[in-house]
Amino acid sequence: MNLAALHERASLNQQVRVFFAERKVLEVETPALSQAGNTDPFIDSFSVNTPHGLRYLHTSPEYPMKRLLVAGAGDIYQLCKVWRRDESGKRHNPEFTLLEWYRLGFTWQQLMHEVADLLHTLIPHLQKPPRFCSYREAFLESVQLDPHLATEAELSACAQAHGIAISGDMPVQAWRDLLLTHCVEPQFPTDQLTFLYHYPASQSALAKIQQVDGQAVAERFEVYLGALELGNGYQEQTDSAQNRLILVQDAHTRGHDIPVDERFLAALEHGLPECAGVALGIDRILLCRMQRDDLKQVIAFSWEVA
């Protein structure tokens, strides 16, 4: 146990609360257990048997927080524990702390700047202004390939040219992800935040989609320090039918092992206000703040000894 990390975390949490109090953003709490889990094919929920039936530990407070937005809560944030069935390692712990907030009337561009303001407060050794770069620009700089136009064969050849040996066929998005993690992200500066935006529409999740230079792109961003991803932000999709379509398609892709959150979808039919939202990993931010390289150095008890 690192006692210094306990004090730093307490200080960081206090700074978060002051930051949002100054902006009149309301702190809220929502349930950690739900009757429906996350249907995203790339995120796995933990389930718990209770006397009232199966419940799922939340992977994010997104759905209940959006229900609060529909109910008129206004700008809100939450600091909470979340659980995902990820592997445990230097940068992953299946139980971690998430900071999530929603700003009514904000664009995703405005939200990026607010995220930068908060992260510069929480990681004081950051001196350089943030870097803003589109997904396409990052690929062109790193691997000289347009990820929106490249075919599966071109992406595969690019990966092989950069020493990535993968046998067998993969879909286009899987090749993009591989190049992003192995070739693009490692080139991000370690002394400056990088905001990557305009992801392919296939990675929109519950973000809006727009046309840019003839390509459909997601109105979302991710923020990094070096190659370490700190968070995801979205121009939230407000169309209830589109939200339902995405969740049902995700559930079908998963094989319907996770029930769709019908309470969330029913709330959206009453009208989600135009907003932008973001989720940041507090443990990773603390890792950067303390300039450490392993989550075990900044959390009280790692997964293995919890």
Rank of each mutant, 00 (worst) to 15 (best):
A138W: 02
L111M: 13
A153I: 12
G163W: 08
Y102P: 11
L178P: 03
Q109S: 06
C183G: 05
E154Y: 03
T181E: 14
L180M: 15
C133S: 12
T181S: 13
M112A: 08
T107H: 03
I166W: 02
A153W: 05
C158A: 13
H182G: 05
R131V: 05
L196H: 01
D169V: 11
L193C: 03
S134Q: 03
Y135I: 04
I123C: 11
S156H: 09
Q127V: 12
G214Q: 01
V217Y: 00
I166Y: 04
L178C: 13
H198V: 00
D117S: 15
I209F: 03
C133I: 15
I123M: 11
H113Y: 10
W175Y: 09
A201C: 09
P200F: 01
Y199L: 09
L149D: 12
M112I: 14
I164G: 11
L155R: 03
S142C: 11
A159V: 13
H125N: 10
L122C: 12
Q210N: 09
E114T: 11
V115H: 02
L140D: 05
C183N: 08
S204L: 00
C183F: 06
S204D: 03
Q211H: 03
D191S: 10
Q144V: 00
V115L: 05
E185T: 08
T181L: 10
P200T: 02
S202H: 03
E114Y: 04
R176I: 09
V184S: 04
L118P: 14
S167N: 15
T121I: 08
W101T: 11
L196R: 00
Q160R: 14
P186D: 08
T107L: 02
H182V: 03
Q110F: 00
Y199T: 08
Q203L: 08
A159N: 10
D191E: 14
D177T: 03
L111D: 10
M112C: 10
C133G: 02
P124Y: 04
L196T: 00
V115P: 09
R176W: 03
E152V: 13
L126T: 07
P186V: 06
D213P: 11
Q215R: 01
A205Q: 02
C158T: 14
H120D: 06
L140G: 00
I164N: 11
P189I: 09
D117Y: 12
S202K: 01
H182C: 10
D169C: 10
A207S: 15
Y199D: 06
Q160A: 14
Y197F: 12
I166K: 04
